[in-house]
Design a protein around this nucleic acid. Structure first.
Lengths: 138, 138
DNA sequence: TTAGATAATGCAATGGAAGTGCATTATCCT
DNA sequence: AGGATAATGCACTTCCATTGCATTATCTAA
């Protein structure tokens, strides 16, 4: 826990009890999770607090949001080397339509692309949906 | 208009007056638009009807949904050769954070990618957000 | 061409996620 | 320890997505 505290500190986020818990939950879930998921795993906390906690985490490069096509934003921890200025950990995301789990395919990075002259890239979201290995075998 | 009618017919969608109007609106907008946008441009129609019309269009490969990071799903017409089974017109999408417009970059196709063994790909969403040319120059 | 089956539409209402304002409480720094 | 600043919790609000049901339109087959 001491460790998490210093991670938050390094990213300029006050390590409050609530935030440590949210971080904990995010690190324990191997999948990307929604605000509601966090809320369900932390019954004591108010939804607004969680909402703002995630917002802060996002702004400071601690988590990245994932639009998986369900309309519900999911979140997952960023790599240690991400920061407020830039999310450097750009990888594919996969959403399974059967088990509804959304996972980071951290081993699969987003390919280099070109966009039209004059456009500025700030964020990239590359999500593949279909059936995951687990559900495909079942 | 006769033309649109046959397009719908070819995709197994009954060409009702309402649907022709929705198609018309989609084809007149060069950007991807939301359900609410359509609703505003067609005051006479009930939102539910538009909702189900878009749903039908989506299922039959007439429009494709775009998750641009705003949490509001946008829609744009598919290429003629898309159908209910497969959306073959896979291109990048760009969302401008300044003017909030979401556009299809039909000239920029989604690069070939590999996903883990055992996974099945059904849909792909590749959206870049930032600042578009128009806003960058302004 | 018309009857009957089937599909589309409109209305009313619900659910759920996202977001805001404000008062209270905790945290950090000196 | 004290005071500025930030975090939290509560009460709302807003907006998009979605459903059930009654009504109306459309298509097909006799």
């Amino acid at each position: 826990m001491k460790e998490v505290e210093s991670i938050l500190h390094d990213k300029n986020v006050r390590p409050t009890a609530m935030r440590l818990l949210v971080y904990q939950i995010l690190s324990e879930n191997k999948n990307a999770i929604s605000l509601t998921d966090i809320e369900n795993q932390l019954k004591t906390a108010d939804r607004t607090t969680l909402y703002r906690t995630i917002k802060t985490f996002e702004e400071q490069g601690i988590v990245h949001p994932i639009e998986d096509g369900t309309g519900i934003t999911k979140y997952a921890l960023c790599a240690a080397y991400c920061n407020a200025d830039k999310h450097k950990d750009l990888h594919l995301h996969f959403h399974c339509k059967v088990c509804e789990e959304t996972t980071c395919l951290t081993e699969y990075s987003i390919p280099q692309i070109s966009i039209p002259e004059g456009y500025i890239t700030e964020d990239i979201n590359f999500t593949v949906s279909g059936v995951c290995k687990k559900c495909n075998q079942g």
